Computed example of a mutant assay.
Amino acid sequence: MSNSYGRFAEVYDALMTDIPYATYVEWVKEHAPAANNQNLLDIGCGTGVMAVEFAKAGYNVSGLDLSEEMLMIASERCYEENVNVFFVCQSMDELDGFNDLDVVTIPIDSLNYVPEQRAVEQTFTHVYEALKTGGHLFFDVHSLYKMDEIFMDSPFTYDDGDITYLWDTEPGEAAHSVKHDMLFYVVTADGTYERFEEQHYQRTYAIETYMTMLQQAGFTNITVTADFTDEAPAIDSERIFFHCVK
């Protein structure tokens, strides 16, 4: 699994302000309350926004990400927020060194950055092995509808005065995959603009395929919802949520 984030780490938080992180944290707390200093691993933790919130909620938190740039920002955030989170730079499909976990999260479509189905399967297997009996896995992914329809409506643009981007998409080689090409202009300290480009690749699968992969890893108690609600997915749902218990 390659590192999909480079300079993007510097602008990530500004572009994610519409994500209801608090709702995500409450979803996890509802089903796996932070009691007795439970061990939680936040996979694809990015800049540490949710890791910090989980730590504040009472979990004993570790964060894992493949991007060193993201983890540097996450560490700074934890220092500023005065919380302790142990961070590891590692690919999720090679998860190693964790055991007796009570909770694992793979939030905000992080799993969609794993390019090969075999690597997704390995991720689920490693997570299952790292969880205690009765432990919880929470993750979300882009739906087929979002990948095949919404993402194909590019170009997308953004301009808040400090960050401007032009975002183009095209179908990837695999089914239900997308190549994202993003051109950024970011205001620097002296008032000039710095230009950089990012290319990301994401892939998703049908709900039934995810269910099969999870069951093959050993999970049998699986609940599927959509779009930050308790409702079952519909044909036009954009984000699919899975809650699995070992």
Rank of each mutant, 00 (worst) to 15 (best):
Y5C: 00
Y5M: 01
G6A: 11
G6T: 06
Y12D: 05
D13S: 10
P20D: 09
T23A: 14
E26I: 07
W27A: 04
V28M: 06
K29E: 13
A34G: 07
A34D: 03
L41Q: 06
G44N: 03
T47A: 03
T47S: 14
A51Y: 01
A51K: 00
A57F: 07
Y59S: 03
V61Q: 03
S62Q: 06
G63C: 07
L64W: 00
D65I: 11
L71G: 02
I73P: 02
I73V: 14
R77Y: 06
R77L: 09
N82R: 07
F86L: 09
V88Q: 06
S91I: 07
D93Y: 02
D93A: 10
D100L: 09
L101E: 00
N112Q: 04
N112C: 14
Y113Q: 11
R118V: 08
T123L: 13
G134F: 07
G135P: 02
H136C: 06
D140G: 10
H142Q: 12
L144K: 05
L144V: 10
Y145S: 02
Y145V: 00
D153K: 15
D160K: 11
I163Y: 02
T164M: 13
L166C: 12
L166T: 11
D168H: 14
D168F: 12
P171G: 11
E173G: 08
E173C: 07
S177F: 15
L183Y: 11
G191F: 10
Y193R: 15
E197G: 11
E198T: 05
E198Q: 13
Q199A: 08
Q199D: 01
H200D: 03
H200C: 01
Y201R: 01
Y205A: 06
I207H: 06
I207E: 11
Y210T: 09
M211K: 13
T212P: 01
Q215N: 13
Q216S: 13
A217C: 11
V224L: 10
S237G: 08
E238F: 06
R239F: 09
H243D: 10
H243E: 11
K246L: 12
K246P: 00
